[in-house]
């Protein structure tokens, strides 16, 4: 059977890719198929990859402080392209207040530094919307 597929992307000019790489590798060890697309992705790039790869989860890693902008844009494009069954999660440096706002906007979860992989992995398994 097909594995749960997760796109890990870094939007915008943020060059902090250590966390995204560590995460990609750890999620592989948890049995997921991770598509890593690298840094400097536009929201359009991310949506296109998500569609072509038919992923179950989009994960954005943002440490630059531009999270409100990028998540809003990706959410917009997800609606436009009918990706309602895809989970949107994120991580990086996101202050608590912004985290609340993002969840209200429709982001499914944000994981800050120090979160264990088990926690992230459990969340994905319990919330992935498509039944395989």
């Amino acid at each position: 059977m097909r594995k749960i597929r997760i796109l890990i992307a870094k939007p915008g000019l943020d060059g902090h890719d250590r966390g995204a790489k560590v995460l990609a590798r750890s999620l592989m060890d948890e049995g997921f198929e991770v598509i890593y697309t690298g840094i400097h992705q536009t929201a359009e790039d991310i949506i296109r990859s998500a569609i072509e790869e038919d992923v179950d989860v989009i994960g954005l890693s943002i440490l630059s402080g531009a999270h409100m902008y990028h998540f809003r844009r990706v959410l917009e494009l997800m609606k436009e392209n009918g990706l309602d069954d895809v989970l949107l999660i994120g991580g990086g440096i996101v202050p608590e207040d912004d985290k609340k706002k993002l969840i209200e906007m429709g982001v499914n979860a944000i994981f800050n530094p120090g979160t264990s992989i088990k926690e992230i992995s459990e969340f994905i398994k319990n919330n992935v919307r498509r039944i395989k």
């Binding site: 594995k3 990609a24 590798r25 999620l27 592989m28 060890d29 948890e30 049995g31 997921f32 198929e33 991770v34 598509i35 890593y36 697309t37 690298g38 400097h40 992705q41 536009t42 359009e44 790039d45 296109r48 990859s49 072509e52 790869e53």
Partner: peptide
């Protein structure tokens, strides 16, 4: 060991995103 995978070939193909006549799958 885990049955998982990291699929990273797209990293090198970013510049193809501008074309509607290209489709990439990992």
């Amino acid at each position: 060991f885990s049955g998982g995978a990291v699929l990273g070939d797209r990293i090198r193909m970013k510049e193809l995103n501008r074309f509607d006549n290209v489709f990439i799958r990992s």
